[in-house]
């Protein structure tokens, strides 16, 4: 807290360059660090945190039988509070049979279509958000640790290139906001490092929980560039890069942000 105030003073005094310099390049910080005290308190109280509406709803979907195979998630994975601990913090993962990465939403839909013989969920639908939140929540407090070696490397590099590439009418890259200016002010927002560890995140502006890809689309649109589709390879590669960039941060799902 003391440090945050000090940096605040630096912004007033010397402009944004100093703010950025106040953060060593390799210092990773969750968006939580820059959140207001009220937002932090809301996130920290499992009861007041509205993201838990989706955690609870996810636990109901988990036991619900759906599809022609007559199965629920629970039929195979039993108790999520045991079987899903330490799963989502390692995603996206390289899938040899697919020749590319797969993230949590895509893994859930694979289980639905292949094993349950049920229809795939739409990306930003209530049941998909609820199940993803529920599954990611089981890793809350565990460090993000994705594998970028071997065959995953190529996809990591593609994600990194995307991150550093200028795009849109404003001709800006992710890094211009979230790396060079983290801690600075953009209109009414305090810029953070744009970390992924709290997703799906309850955003006060959205009045609901939203996926990481929704956030990617929003940040693309902000610089007036055409967003990619939910689940596009470009976004899954970016997700791997971003998660790796946040190595050491702990999963906060469901985080609360403004």
């Amino acid at each position: 807290m003391k440090k945050a105030r000090l940096i605040g003073a630096a912004i007033v005094g010397f402009g944004m360059t100093l703010t950025a310099a106040a953060y060593a390049e390799d210092e990773v910080r969750s968006g939580y660090y820059w959140a207001t005290e009220e937002t932090k308190a809301m996130q920290d109280d499992d009861f007041a945190n509205p993201g838990f509406i989706w955690v609870e709803s996810g636990s109901e979907h988990w036991t619900k039988v759906e599809g022609d195979a007559g199965k629920a998630c629970q039929s195979c994975h039993e108790n999520a509070e045991k079987s899903m601990v330490g799963v989502a913090n390692k995603y996206p993962k390289y899938r040899e049979d697919m020749g590319k990465l797969q993230n949590v939403e895509q893994r859930i839909n694979e289980c639905r279509t292949k094993f349950m013989k049920a229809k795939a969920f739409k990306w930003e639908s209530e049941p998909m958000l609820a199940l993803t939140t529920y599954v990611r929540h089981q890793s809350k407090g565990l460090p993000v640790e994705v594998d970028i070696d071997g065959p995953a490397r190529k996809f990591y590099e593609a994600g990194k290139a995307f991150y550093n590439e200028r795009r849109g009418q404003l001709d800006m890259a992710c890094k211009h906001c979230h790396q060079d200016n983290a801690g600075g002010i953009l209109r009414a927002n305090v810029l953070t490092q744009g970390q992924s560890n709290g997703f799906p995140t309850y955003r006060l502006k959205w009045n609901k929980i939203g996926s990481l890809h929704r956030r990617f689309r929003g940040c693309n649109k902000q610089v007036r560039s055409k967003p990619f589709a939910y689940g596009a390879d470009e976004y899954v590669n970016l997700e791997l890069f971003l998660n790796h960039r946040g190595t050491g941060l702990k999963i906060e799902t469901p985080a609360v942000r403004n």
Binding site: M42, F47, A48, P50, I53, L204, N207, K208
Partner: peptide, 8 residues
């Protein structure tokens, strides 16, 4: 009052 209101 915000969406998903919390009251204590």
């Amino acid at each position: 009052i915000s969406a998903n209101p919390y009251l204590a």
